[in-house]
């Protein structure tokens, strides 16, 4: 290949990558173009542009699975009616990522493959127990999204492999929510990002939690799932006391650094606060108690907190 090619199929892309070991995959380019300009990525590396691949951008239902194509833009994710209603956490994370312009370019797959510790798409997909599909020279493999990133800017993708789609299920009586804390209201990376997902045994205030997951972004080298929540929550509604235990578990699951977006101590504290808040909203959604639409965007979480408490 020359310095740039635009395959039309996944198999063609995989074949090109197999034949060009130094080639890099480009999708939206919102990270890679900067990295090439600043020398963080090899500016001479040939580019394999995957945005021309037929079908790789689709968002649709495949049976009871929501299929999210790897090159679906963040803007398409945030405005997809199925995502908004059935995977609210993902829509809420999508609409606080960057600016309108960035969201029109940045892709779901690109966000996962860049694997920033603050990757906005990772926590919501993790709580939805999403599975990624990876295509390589030896065929397709599926992997839990929770194990996709292995560290800052590293993933399980082997040389020559590309991420093709992400799939998740949204059972009845489930709900999710994503909240984050940032220094600025917009155009900022998360200081802390928290996604929560709850499955209840029915509707109403007394609906008991059957399963629950909370994932934290920007507080560890990769987004992390909070362990041990089932024992804290299963079999009862999320009472104030139980939510307090969720906060403590979330804070304990953090391995944060201190930087311009917050000290380690502050991040640990905020992760706990947002975990309880997001879980309470996810429960309200699962139990049919939520009529507030998506949570207000970043910087106005207090409004969400009060409506969550009412729910």
């Amino acid at each position: 290949m020359n310095g740039y090619c635009r395959p039309r199929s996944v198999s063609e892309a995989v074949a090109i990558l197999a034949a060009n070991s130094g080639a890099m995959v480009i999708a939206g380019g919102t990270d890679l173009v900067i990295d090439r300009r600043l020398g963080r990525a090899d500016p001479q590396a040939p580019l394999v542009d995957v945005t021309g691949i037929d079908g790789l951008r689709d968002v649709h239902w495949d049976g009871d699975e929501l299929h999210l194509g790897a090159t679906a833009t963040v803007r398409e994710i945030e405005s997809d009616p199925a995502v908004i209603v059935r995977a609210s956490a993902l829509a809420e994370a999508a609409r606080v990522l960057g600016s309108v312009q960035i969201r029109n370019m940045a892709t779901l797959g690109g966000n996962l493959c860049t694997a920033s510790p603050a990757a906005e798409m990772a926590p919501p997909l993790m709580v939805h127990d999403a599975v990624v599909a990876i295509q390589g020279p030896d065929g397709e493999r599926r992997w839990a999204v929770a194990d996709f990133a292995t560290g800052p800017r590293t993933t399980i993708l082997a040389s020559g492999e590309i991420l093709t789609n992400v799939r998740l299920r949204t059972p009845a009586h489930s709900g999710s929510c994503y909240l984050r804390q940032t220094v600025r209201w917009a155009m900022d990376l998360a200081g802390v990002g928290v996604a929560a997902w709850v499955l209840t045994d029915g509707t109403g205030r007394e609906a008991a939690v059957q399963e629950a997951r909370v994932a934290l972004g920007a507080v560890a080298p990769t987004a992390v799932l909070v362990p041990g929540l089932e024992a804290l929550l299963a079999g009862a509604p999320p009472t104030t006391e139980r939510l307090g235990a969720v906060s403590a578990a979330a804070s304990a699951a953090c391995k944060p650094i201190s930087d311009t977006r917050g000290t380690a101590e502050h991040r640990r504290h905020v992760a706990g606060v947002l975990a309880a808040r997001a879980l309470s909203i996810a429960h309200a959604r699962a139990a049919g108690l939520w009529s507030g639409g998506l949570a207000p965007v970043n910087g106005r979480e207090s409004a969400v907190a009060s409506s969550g408490a009412r729910a």
């Binding site: 740039y4 380019g29 580019l47 945005t51 803007r75 312009q101 370019m105």
Partner: peptide, 13 residues
């Protein structure tokens, strides 16, 4: 019909 930042938009796309 979509606003983009042209500094990050590669023309091959």
């Amino acid at each position: 019909g979509r606003s983009v930042v042209s500094c990050l938009q590669t023309v091959g796309q």
